[in-house]
Amino acid sequence: MAEIRIAQATPPAAGRGAATPPPAAGRGAQRTGPVMAGQLIDLILTRLGAPNRPRSNDRLVAGDPLTPVTGIATVAMATLDALKAAAAAKKNLILTADATWWSEGDGLVGMEGNPTFRAKRDFIRANNLVVYRIADHLADARPNPIADGMARGLGWEEQTVEGGETVRFRLMPTNLLDLSRFLKERLGARTLRVVGDPALPVRDVAAIWGRATQMPAIRALRSDIDVLVVGYTFEWEAVLYVQDQIAIGLKKGLILLGQVPSLQGGMKHFAGWLAGQITEVPVEHIALAEGWWNLERPVNEITTTL
C-alpha cells in the first residue's frame, strides 16, 4: 500500500465549489498514510462543488469506504469489463456516471442468487474495488465536466453556444448524414441511430448527454435547433415527437448515440480534472467498448474471460 498524501486544496475550477472548505482529509497538507475511499469521495464531491440533491442515485454502490485506495478510475458505466480493466490498471476506486447494478437506483432486491450478480460481486470483493455513482454531482457541477469533455472530444469547444436549457452548438454548415458519420467515427458509436432526412441542412445542434427524458427533449426539439443529439430517449416519446415534427414539414433531426458514447468523453475529461486535484493517487479514465453490434459489423467486443 503506497503512502499517499493529499495535496493542499486548490480552488477548483468549479466556481461554486470555491467557497466550500475542503473536508478533513484534505486539510492537513502534510497528512500521510493510506487514504481511504470514503475520504477521497468526500474530497472529490467537495472539490466538484455541487451540493447534494435531496434525492439522488449518487452513492457508494459497491465496496467498503474504508478500503485503502491504489488509484482512481472514471468510467461511463461500471460494467464488469470496465471493472476488470480498472483492476488490471491497479485502480480500485471507480467513479461511474451510470449504473453498476443494472437499474437507475442500483437496487439489489432479488439479486443474491443470480450468477451474474455473484460473479460481479465476487470480482469486486476479490479486487478490493469501491464503486461510487457520481452522475448527479457531475450534472450539477459548473463548469460541467461531462459537457466540457464531450465538446472537447468532438472538437466543438469553439462552437459552444451558452445560455440554453441544454448544451448548444453552432456548427459549420453540414447535413444530418455527415453529422451522423462524424459522430459515429469520433465517438466510436458504431450502432448509432438517426431519425430524419439524411440531407437535412444542419447548423444548430442541441445535445443531452446520457439519457434524455421526454422533457427536456421535446423542449429542445421545438427550440430553434436543427438536430438534437442524445444518448438515449424512448421511442414513444421524443422519437415519435421528432417524427411528427418532420411529418408536418418541419426541418428536424434526432441522433441516438447510445449511453456509453454519449458520456465517456465527459468521464475522460473528468479524470483529467481529478488528476489535477488529487496528485498522489493516480487517476485514469477507462474507455469502454460500445458493447452493441449490428448486422453491418457483427463483432462482439466484450471479453468473456474473468
Binding site: 464488469l80 469489463d81 450468477p115 468473456t304
Partner: peptide, 26 residues
C-alpha cells in the same frame, strides 16, 4: 435503456456466461 437489461447481458458475457440480447426497435 443501456444501463438496464443490455448492461446485464454485457456483464453476463464478461462473466463468461453465454447470453445474448437482440433489440429490434419498439
Amino acid at each position: 435503456q443501456d444501463w438496464d437489461l443490455p448492461m446485464f447481458v454485457r456483464d453476463s458475457l464478461a462473466a463468461g456466461r453465454d447470453k445474448a440480447l437482440i433489440v429490434i426497435g419498439h
